[in-house]
Amino acid sequence: MTEPVLSGRPTQQIERDDSASDRRTTGPAAPAFAQLSSPYFPILVAGFVGVMLISNITGTKGVVLFPFLNFSAGPFSMHGLVTDGAFYLFPAAYVLGDVISEVYGFKAMRRVILSGFGVLLLASLCFWITVQLPAADFYEGQQAFEAVAGVVPRFLAAGLAGYLVGEFLNSLVLVKMKARSGERRLWARLLGSTVVGEFADTLIFCAIAAGALGISTWQDFVNYTVIGFAWKTLVEILVMPITYRVTAALKRREPTYQQALQAHP
Rank of each mutant, 00 (worst) to 15 (best):
F106N: 12
L203D: 04
T256N: 14
L156Y: 09
F221T: 03
F229T: 14
G97K: 05
R154V: 04
A92G: 07
R111W: 05
V112W: 00
V119C: 06
D18S: 06
Q35F: 11
M52S: 08
Q35G: 10
P10Y: 00
L234T: 12
W128Y: 13
F87M: 01
G116F: 10
D201P: 10
A147E: 02
A249S: 02
Q259S: 08
V103P: 13
E146Y: 13
A144H: 09
S115K: 10
F87H: 02
T247C: 09
T225Q: 08
R184E: 03
P28T: 02
P91K: 15
Q35T: 10
L125R: 14
W187I: 09
Q13I: 15
W231D: 11
K232P: 01
S55R: 02
V51K: 14
E146H: 03
Y139C: 08
L186N: 06
S77T: 08
A263L: 14
V195L: 15
T225E: 04
I57M: 04
S55E: 05
G197N: 07
Y94N: 00
G62D: 02
D84S: 11
A136W: 07
S38R: 03
A93D: 06
F48Q: 03
V45L: 11
G116L: 13
T83M: 03
V99P: 00
A144R: 07
G62E: 00
G62Q: 05
A210H: 12
P134W: 11
I227K: 05
L114M: 14
A29I: 04
A230R: 03
A149R: 08
E167P: 08
V95C: 05
I208A: 05
P75V: 04
D22I: 04
F199Q: 03
S115E: 12
P91H: 15
V82M: 11
D17R: 09
V64R: 13
Y163F: 13
D98E: 13
H264R: 11
P153K: 12
A249P: 06
I215H: 08
S7C: 09
I54F: 13
L213N: 05
L65K: 12
A158I: 11
S124P: 00
K176G: 08
T83D: 06
A29D: 07
R111N: 09
G50K: 00
L121C: 14
R111H: 12
E254Y: 08
L186W: 11
W218S: 11
A29W: 06
A260H: 13
P75N: 12
A207I: 02
G116R: 05
Y94P: 00
M240D: 01
I129D: 06
P153M: 04
L53K: 10
H264T: 11
A73S: 07
Q132D: 07
F168D: 01
E198T: 00
G80P: 10
A147M: 09
A136R: 12
R180Y: 15
G80C: 01
I215C: 04
A263R: 15
E198C: 06
V196F: 07
G211H: 13
F76G: 07
S115P: 12
I54T: 01
A200H: 15
M240E: 02
A158P: 03
T26F: 11
G27F: 09
R154W: 06
A212I: 03
S7T: 04
